[in-house]
Design a protein around this nucleic acid. Structure first.
Length: 159
DNA sequence: CGCCTTTGACCAGCGC
DNA sequence: GCGCTGGTCAAAGGCG
């Protein structure tokens, strides 16, 4: 174990040049800028961030799907309670390199958004983690990244 | 040569 | 029962 969250400051590295215009599209949004998602409760608990990726808690807003009160139904048939967390970041790029390797496996145009939705999957076998990336329909400069599941491997260790 | 990306089609689930 | 949306898989092409 160990090295679960080696660094929380190495998030979002420039895919091209570190000193290019990357400084222009830095992650720069406010926590007060809350996304409005039904059944989603906003959580600023940074403790749930490191377990998903090396994200800086003060730079990311996370949304965790509520367990839903079973919608008035007997037999608590709670489906697979996967860890679903959504991040909204103000970035020019959609592919935020969090250190993990993602493989795009689909693209779909959602009706709720003028922009297409991208589906990514962790390239590491045994990693059920899926990533959904789409731009905010109201603010195309905002990128909504939704993580589903947890990494079975202890990080890619790019270092 | 290998890996990744892209597009299309198909399937499943839910709502009306 | 039908229609619609979302999600996933597969195959081909391009680039490194």
């Amino acid at each position: 174990m160990a090295a679960n969250n080696p660094t929380t400051a190495n998030m979002f590295r420039s895919p091209d040049s570190p000193d290019s215009d990357f400084s222009n599209h830095l992650i720069n949004f406010e926590l007060s800028d809350i996304l409005e998602i039904d059944n989603w409760s906003v959580q600023q608990d940074p403790t749930l961030l490191p377990q998903h990726s090396n994200y800086a808690p003060n730079q990311v807003v996370s949304y965790q799907e509520e367990p839903s009160n079973n919608i008035g139904s007997s037999s608590g048939e709670r489906k697979e309670e996967k860890d679903k967390v959504a991040f909204r970041t103000l970035s020019k790029i959609e592919i935020l390199d969090d250190g993990y390797k993602w493989k795009k496996y689909g693209k779909k145009m959602v009706k709720n958004s003028p922009n297409p939705r991208n589906y990514y999957r962790c390239s590491v076998e045994g990693c059920p983690v899926k990533k959904r990336v789409e731009r905010d329909k109201e603010d195309s400069r905002y990128v909504i990244t939704t993580y589903e599941g947890v990494h079975n491997h202890q990080g890619p260790s790019p270092f």
